[in-house]
Design a protein around this nucleic acid. Structure first.
Length: 582
RNA sequence: CGGGAUGUAGCGCAGCGGUAGCGCACCUGUUUUGGGAACAGGGGGUCGCUGGUUCAAAUCCAGUCAUCCCGACCA
């Protein structure tokens, strides 16, 4: 391809709305262009890279036995209603109506769709296992799109869904997909970390994310500092909390006492007021959903993990309780709740805004057996001191972990070494879905004995655009992008240096020979000064640059520059053409 | 959804009551040509949109839309 056919869209200045390197460089080098918040045009080079990544994904998926299909992007509401996700997906799902007022959603994911398909065709155990995948557009109305392609509202995802007769079969495919993903990211020259993850709103068990370590990552990962022997890695959402120092178990004789604490609300203020460690405080956080009001009690020095909380409750949606609800449940203003002397009892039903809601208490296990605790007084501007677990409040459910683990906590696997925190961008996810969707949509197959059974599912996703931009995040310099050969738009950027038509014709002949040789080459045949071409070649970042100038005209010698190493080699045209012949 | 900021030429910005500008990019010509050329000439904007104030609005006021940042769970 020639520059005069496929023009460059490079620019010198960073777009003002870009924050991260990949967004800036991909825009400056003319790969992508934002059309609206979270929506991007892929320009010719950008689409070439995108297609190459898709091909790598497709090749490997096929290699590992998956089969490609295409599902409609616009999905009917009934499917979502059957799975219960029409409501559960919330505002993230983009919805619309057709002319008959029938509801549709622009698919944010396709579990329902594929399960529907499975129901149409799967009847016998002989057809299983099967792994369907597609590479298609997804829509998610993100609260805040950002970082260019890393978090946008329309994006291409490879999503695969497997169906199995039993756990064993599911695990086999799951392990294959993990290998497949490793192959895919290796082929893209993308360094990834795989971490244990939560399976989130999708439900299910067994879940691993493929992460690219990056300061701009939106996920926090916790890794065991002994990577060699232990090697534990997980998403912070999922990491069990093992404190480096145990919380003191003690008994106090003194009885609870209410103290005046005007304007002392936050844990820090309370700890300061009573001159005690934050660990001695019971933090009370009150949540609410359509059925219940949930009072959560955890040690004052830590944060609640909403993911763990949702999993324990088995719900997808949870909100902080409204001030009205809090006042009703604690008879105090927001900020003074505690487990002792509450006006409500566990499992009691109360009416809030005409809705009946059940009261649920959840205590973190780290409060078990502890004394000399302080909590809110369930009265505005008051706190209780001298609280004792087992006497003033009782933890009946054992081993509930509600705390977010963090940097420097103990590794939950080896329980010897400390965890180390790092940020990551999720580019792939594999997980065991279970029977949630096959049950909801009533999918059954007959087993060997002619008995009906519900297949279990696995689910495997890769964000293509996100993979593309994380490659750039990992591979650039102050001049521009540096593409690995596997995804570069063209392998060679041919810089023609000429100042008359005769010389230009010579270089054109070189280009024609390369094309005849089946080489992937982009010929910068513009009538521009050399400096412009060198800079555009660096910015666009094709793997190898070929300079054909005076030395070529005179001696038929070309110069090859490796974009990554900067290394230059000179080689005669004939050697080059014969050596590089594909 | 709450707080903040910004909308002026393709891109990046200045102007902030009285003729709409600069740099880059673009077009023409001449000289140049191995790391973003010089000179000369030229094209391009209902100043986000709507309404108001004023003799006069890019500029002041109100509303609205869009974009970006921070937060939206740690009481």
């Amino acid at each position: 391809m020639r520059a005069t056919q496929l023009p460059l869209f490079t620019q010198k200045e960073d777009p003002k709305d870009a924050q991260v390197v990949s967004h800036k460089l991909l825009t400056r080098a003319g790969y992508i262009k934002k059309q609206a918040s979270g929506f991007y045009v892929f320009l010719p080079f950008g689409w070439m890279v995108h297609r190459k990544i898709e091909e790598i994904v497709r090749k490997n998926m096929n290699k590992y036995g998956a089969v490609e299909v295409h599902l409609p992007i616009l999905t009917p509401a009934e499917l979502w209603e059957e799975s219960g996700r029409w409501n559960a997906m919330g505002a993230e799902m983009m919805r619309l109506k057709d002319r008959h007022a029938a509801g549709f959603a622009l698919g944010p994911t396709h579990e329902e769709s594929i399960t529907w398909l499975a129901k149409q065709y799967l009847q016998s155990y002989k057809q299983l296992p099967v792994n369907y995948y597609q590479i298609g557009v997804k829509y998610r109305d993100e609260i805040r799109p950002r970082y260019g392609l890393i978090r946008c509202r329309e994006f291409v995802m490879k999503d695969a869904y497997s169906f199995h007769i039993d756990e064993k079969s599911l695990d086999e495919t799951y392990q294959k997909m993990r290998e497949c993903y490793r192959d895919i990211f290796n082929e893209c020259s993308l360094e990834t970390l795989s971490v244990e993850a939560d399976s989130g709103a999708m439900g299910g068990s067994g879940s691993e994310e493929f992460m690219v370590a990056s300061a701009i990552g939106e996920e926090t990962l916790l890794l065991c500092s002994d990577d060699k022997n232990c090697g534990y890695r997980s998403n912070q959402e999922k990491t069990p909390f093992v404190p480096a120092e145990n919380y003191p178990v003690e008994k106090n004789e003194k009885t609870p006492k209410r103290k005046d604490t005007p304007n002392v609300k936050t844990v820090d203020e309370v700890a300061d007021f009573f001159k005690v460690d934050k660990k001695q405080f019971i933090k009370t956080v009150i949540y609410e959903n359509s059925e219940s009001i949930i009072l959560v009690f955890i040690p004052g020095d830590r944060e609640i993990s909403e993911v763990k909380l949702k999993n324990i409750l088995g719900v997808a949606e949870l909100e902080m309780a409204s001030p009205e609800a809090i006042e009703k449940v604690t008879s105090a203003a927001v900020g003074f709740a505690g487990p002792f002397d509450l006006p409500v009892k566990e499992n009691e039903e109360i009416i809030i805004n005409k809705n009946k809601k059940k009261i649920i208490f959840l205590y973190d296990e780290k409060l078990k057996g502890r004394g000399n605790l302080i909590s809110g007084g369930n009265k505005t501007d008051m706190h209780y001191i001298n609280l004792q677990e087992g006497r003033d409040f009782i933890i009946s459910k054992e081993f509930i972990d509600l705390v977010t683990a963090q940097d420097l906590d103990l590794c939950p696997k080896c329980k010897k070494n400390k965890l180390k925190g790092t940020r990551g961008i999720e580019v792939g996810h594999v997980f065991k879905l279970g029977k949630k969707y096959t049950e909801a949509l009533n999918v059954t197959v007959l087993d060997k004995l002619g008995k009906e059974l519900i297949p279990t599912m696995g689910c495997y996703g890769i964000g293509v655009g996100r993979t593309l931009s994380t490659i750039v995040e990992q591979s650039y310099d102050d001049k521009g992008i540096i593409w690995p050969e596997s995804v570069t738009p063209f392998k060679y950027y041919l810089i023609g240096i000429f100042n008359n038509d005769t010389d230009k014709k010579e270089i054109e002949a070189l280009y024609e020979k390369m094309i005849a040789n089946n080489m992937s080459v982009y010929f910068d045949d513009r009538d521009e000064r050399p400096g412009i071409k060198f800079n555009d070649a660096d910015l666009t970042g094709f793997t190898l640059q070929i300079v054909a100038g005076k030395n070529y005209i005179k001696n038929k010698v070309i110069e090859i520059k490796n974009r990554k190493s900067g290394e230059k080699t000179e080689i005669s045209e004939s050697d080059f053409l014969s050596k590089e012949k594909s």
